[in-house]
């Protein structure tokens, strides 16, 4: 039974789907927070994530070259997060803030422009070609394999996937603590709820906006580093390719609902992998070439059926 059905399904579809879902989830958190609090769809979010991942790689490469020490990607992610947060705050200050009182669409255009500017800048600095993020093959974790084999449910899960799934759980728990139990987190929810009321309540909205970029930027970098750990490569188009699934996840979960976005990310990631499973007959249900179309299809269905998302976020 397991070898006929479960082995292939779990190892080659379900686990990769979960991993992809975690990555989308962390990316979508930033999208949904900025959409909810600053009230616009930030098209540059994917590029922020991509830039952060390049920074992480660069930090690792510099340390390797100067000291010969190979750092784990999660360690290189720490300075990268700092860099990405600074970048996000600078972009906000010089390109988004001038439009705070203007019609929303102006800042959407500005973010669309930032998408191109940031990507071009990365391409100028690092070049357009793929870079190997982590070298070598990450073999399935031996202990897990032996144990699951002994109970006839062999799982082939490489360590990187444990890092990604475990890391995502930790980040989501931290996020939960931030939003539910800290002053600034509650204020973020309040501004997302009603910016007008937040302002006349005396909440300093600019401080909340800054906190939003910090949280969004950090989670974006983690998503990017996880993605690069998974694919083991870096590409300047990775941010743009992530953009649509991240928007889809944010809309699915309801705009302004960070945990909705996490849920949405998991659903989209799983859906993208599971549609390639041969549910009927022996051929993939949907050709893997169309995998990225799944996110779009889910998003369009959501926009038709329930634009406020599953967890009843905002619609504009």
């Amino acid at each position: 039974m397991w070898m006929d059905f479960g082995f292939e399904f779990v190892n080659f579809y379900l686990v990769p789907g979960l991993v992809l879902g975690c990555i989308y989830a962390l990316g979508a958190v930033g999208i949904t927070l900025t959409f909810g609090i600053l009230r616009f769809a930030n098209f540059a979010h994917g590029e922020l994530m991509m830039t952060g991942t390049y920074l992480a790689w660069t930090f690792g490469a510099v340390v390797l070259a100067t000291t010969g020490v190979v750092l784990h990607p999660l360690i290189t992610a720490i300075p990268a997060m700092a860099g990405a947060v600074v970048l996000a705050l600078l972009i906000d200050r010089y390109f988004y803030k001038p439009f705070r009182d203007a019609p929303t669409i102006m800042v959407v255009i500005a973010s669309f422009g930032m998408m191109l500017i940031v990507r071009s800048a990365v391409q100028v600095i690092w070049g357009p070609n793929q870079i190997a993020f982590v070298r070598g093959i990450d073999k399935p974790n031996a202990a897990v394999r032996e144990f699951t084999q002994s109970i006839d449910m062999m799982l082939l899960i490489p360590n990187k996937h444990f890092w990604i799934i475990g890391g995502t759980i930790v980040i989501v728990l931290l996020l939960h603590y931030l939003l539910e139990h800290t002053r600034i987190g509650k204020a973020m929810r309040a501004v997302s709820d009603s910016p007008d009321l937040a302002r006349v309540t005396g909440i300093n909205v600019e401080v909340v906006v800054r906190a939003t970029w910090i949280v969004g930027g950090m989670s974006a970098v983690m998503a990017g580093v996880f993605l690069a750990m998974d694919t083991q490569t870096l590409e300047t188009t990775m941010g743009f390719r992530m953009l649509l699934p991240m928007f889809a996840a944010a809309i699915l979960g309801g705009i302004g609902r960070p945990f909705g976005a996490v849920f949405g990310g998991l659903v989209i990631g799983l859906a993208e992998e599971l549609v390639a499973y041969p549910w009927i007959g022996t051929e993939p249900l949907i050709s893997p070439g169309y995998k990225t179309g799944v996110a779009f299809a889910i998003m369009v269905v959501m926009l038709i059926v329930r634009p406020s998302g599953i967890f009843k976020g905002r619609t504009f």
Binding site: R183, K186, A187, R189, A190, S192, D193, S194, D196, L197, A198, V200, T201, G202, I203, N204
Partner: peptide
């Protein structure tokens, strides 16, 4: 202190969280 006519509470926050936000300053 000001109480607007409509939309004068944060609907997604609990009552206590609303009060805490009131004390932001």
């Amino acid at each position: 202190s000001y109480v607007p006519q409509t939309q004068n509470v944060f609907v997604n926050l609990s009552v206590q969280e609303n009060l805490e936000m009131g004390a932001w300053t």
